[in-house]
Every structure is written in structure tokens, then in C-alpha cells.
Simulated assay, not measured.
Amino acid sequence: MVHRDIKTTNILLNEHLQAKLADFGLSRSFPIEGETHVSTVVAGTIGYLDPEYYRTNWLTEKSDVYSFGIVILEIITNKPVIDQNREKRHIAEWVGQMLTKGDIKSITDPSLHGDYDSSSVWKAVELAMSCLNPSSINRPTMTQVVSELNECLASENLRGGQSQEMDSQSSIEVSMTFEPEANPAAR
């Protein structure tokens, strides 16, 4: 199944900070096992749309990977996807420009006040940027994304840091589970 509208407002957190994906109204499923894409009219939210899907009308599982890469950048930067006041209006272009300067502090949310493991943030930013590869075939799978995010989280948890209130929840792990009864039918 491809969600087609992964964005921060469609990711909900429960009382245990476990993320749940919401709003499956645009989702599509692949009817035949082994299909790599579905031709469909482009749908989704500007800024999160996979440019390859937009150009070709071919929806793949990697279309959601692109959108999730944007979400990762939003979380790291605490910046909107599109900002008319930035020189580079789209978050991916802005982060790309900041990466060339080599300073992770210019990318991360300033309200963190440097309280993070810079190597895990670098890894998360690089992961997000790999999700945004213009060619879907060169993007990681969602399983690879989850695995790498867990590595970043483990590195951050080992660091300790000043934010001790999160330490009580250090067992939080990025997971990807699919409960058949919980998955809505695609429209």
C-alpha cells in the first residue's frame, strides 16, 4: 500500500509517543504481487510530493519514502516545508544549501541549543536527503529508513545529553508494524 499523503499533520502520536499514520483517503494498493508501480492521477500535498511521481504519474512504494524524507527534515530543522521568506523556498533545497556549508548547527532546530549527538543528526540528515533522491530506484526502502533511524536513536540515547526527561522513555524505538485489521481499504 502507498499512502500518497505522508506529511507531519498525518502522523499522530499517542500518550506513549508512538506514531500512528492517519488519513488513508488518498492511499492506493498494488493489486498484483510483484508490481513495481501503479499509474494514477497525481495526488498529495505540495512540498511532500515525489517529483518522479509528479512527472510520470507512476506511483511506487518509494513515493512515500520521498515524503517521509521531507518529514525527517521538518523534524530536524523545525522549519516548514515551503517558506516564501527563504532564499531556497523548499526545505530540501534549503537543507542542501546548508549542507554545503558543513555546519549541522545551521540545520538543526535552534531550540535544541546544541543538545544532541551531531553524528546522529548528520546521519539522519544524510538519510533524509537519500530519501529525496530524484530517482526512486536510488532511494532506500522504508525498512532501511527505519533501521537507520533506530541507529541514530541508539546513538543519541547513549550520549545521555541534558534532556533527562526523555531518558525515562529511552526505550522508544522506531518501528514499522502492519496490523492487517488496522489497515483501511484503499479507495
Rank of each mutant, 00 (worst) to 15 (best):
L132I: 05
I172W: 15
V121F: 12
T141Q: 03
L12H: 13
K88I: 00
D64E: 03
F68Q: 03
I76G: 02
I46Q: 14
G44T: 08
V42R: 08
S67T: 05
I104D: 01
A128N: 00
H90V: 05
N133A: 12
I76F: 01
I72Y: 00
T141P: 02
S111T: 13
L59G: 01
L59Y: 04
T56Q: 01
E151F: 05
V145L: 06
S163A: 11
S118E: 14
M98D: 04
A185F: 06
K88E: 13
F30H: 07
I72T: 04
E148D: 10
L153S: 14
G160S: 10
T100C: 08
G161W: 12
K88Q: 12
H113M: 15
F178G: 08
A154F: 15
K105A: 10
G96L: 05
N10I: 09
E74I: 11
M98K: 15
R139E: 00
T100N: 13
Q84H: 11
V145Q: 00
N85E: 07
E181T: 12
E156Y: 09
M129H: 09
R89H: 10
I75Q: 10
S120T: 15
I76K: 00
R139G: 00
S130I: 06
A185M: 14
M98V: 12
T143G: 07
D103G: 02
H113Y: 14
S175L: 09
G102K: 11
A182N: 13
N57C: 14
L13Q: 14
W94H: 14
V174R: 08
D103P: 01
A19V: 06
S67R: 08
H90Q: 09
S168R: 10
S163P: 03
E156V: 03
M166A: 15
L17A: 12
K79Y: 08
I32A: 11
M176C: 15
T56D: 01
M1P: 05
A182G: 08
N85A: 14
P180G: 14
S111N: 09
I6N: 01
V95A: 06
V42L: 09
L127K: 02
P110V: 09
S39T: 12
L73N: 00
H16R: 14
E148S: 11
I70N: 00
E35M: 15
L132G: 00
V38T: 04
Y66W: 13
V125W: 10
I46K: 11
Y48N: 05
L26N: 04
T108A: 11
G96K: 09
V2F: 03
P31Q: 07
F30M: 12
L17E: 04
N138P: 01
E126C: 13
T60W: 10
D50I: 02
E126Y: 08
F24M: 06
T143K: 12
D83P: 04
